[in-house]
Amino acid sequence: MDVTERIGELAMDAGIRVAAAESLTGGQVCTALGATPGASDWFAGGVVAYTIETKNLVLGVHLDIDPCSAECARTMAAGVRDALEVDAAVATTGVGGPDPQDGHAPGTVFIGWARGSHVGAREFSFEGDDPEQIVEASTRAALEMLAEILDGMSEDEDR
């Protein structure tokens, strides 16, 4: 079973809906989730917010927040969770390269998550010769993180 099928199974078993907010990955997370069989039962959708202005307008990210930061990733995840009224969400932001941006090296990525009222983020440092490699690694990491938080939700219910 691949990670998107696992996400679907976990979401269906818990009776919840999920969403994604993307910057760096430009819709790749949503594409993967939406292509999963049965996604219409658990995937609410997502927001691609590439600029800080769009992140602010749609997801509530303050204009003075570093777009390549844990704070931005957490705010994006909470913003899409609230906007789409879902139980869990994941968000991606960072520098795809090939050049550094605002003092951050290419491959510096933050993936945020929101689960109920809880939010968090994790920093990643991906290697790659071109932005496509960074986007692919970031998409995979975001999907794995979503599966991880959904698995955590089912464990919480078991207690």
Rank of each mutant, 00 (worst) to 15 (best):
S154E: 13
E22A: 01
I149L: 08
S138Y: 05
G79H: 05
G152D: 06
F126I: 14
G152I: 12
D41W: 11
L150K: 06
D158W: 12
G120C: 06
N56H: 15
L63T: 10
V18P: 00
K55H: 06
P131Q: 03
F110C: 04
A35R: 14
G116L: 05
G103R: 02
R159V: 14
G120M: 03
G103E: 09
G27E: 02
W113D: 03
G103F: 10
T4F: 02
G26M: 06
D2C: 09
A78K: 11
M76H: 09
V61Q: 05
A147Y: 04
D66E: 09
L59C: 04
G38R: 08
E71L: 14
I52R: 07
E22F: 06
A141H: 01
P131Y: 02
G96D: 06
V119T: 15
I65Y: 10
V109T: 03
P98W: 10
D129L: 13
M12A: 14
P100F: 10
R159D: 15
E123S: 09
A35M: 11
L150P: 07
E22W: 03
P131T: 00
I52Y: 01
T75R: 14
L57G: 12
R140I: 10
V135K: 02
A11P: 01
R122G: 04
D64F: 02
V86E: 04
D13W: 11
R122W: 05
D129T: 15
G60R: 03
H62L: 13
A137S: 11
V135D: 01
L63P: 09
S40N: 09
W113I: 10
G96C: 07
D2A: 09
R6P: 02
E127Y: 08
E127F: 08
G46F: 05
A11C: 06
H118K: 14
H104R: 08
F126W: 07
R122D: 12
M153I: 15
E5G: 10
Q101M: 13
T139D: 02
A89D: 06
A88M: 11
D82L: 09
V61W: 02
W113S: 11
T54D: 09
D66I: 00
G152H: 00
P67Y: 03
A11V: 05
R140V: 12
E123V: 01
D156H: 08
D156G: 05
S69Q: 04
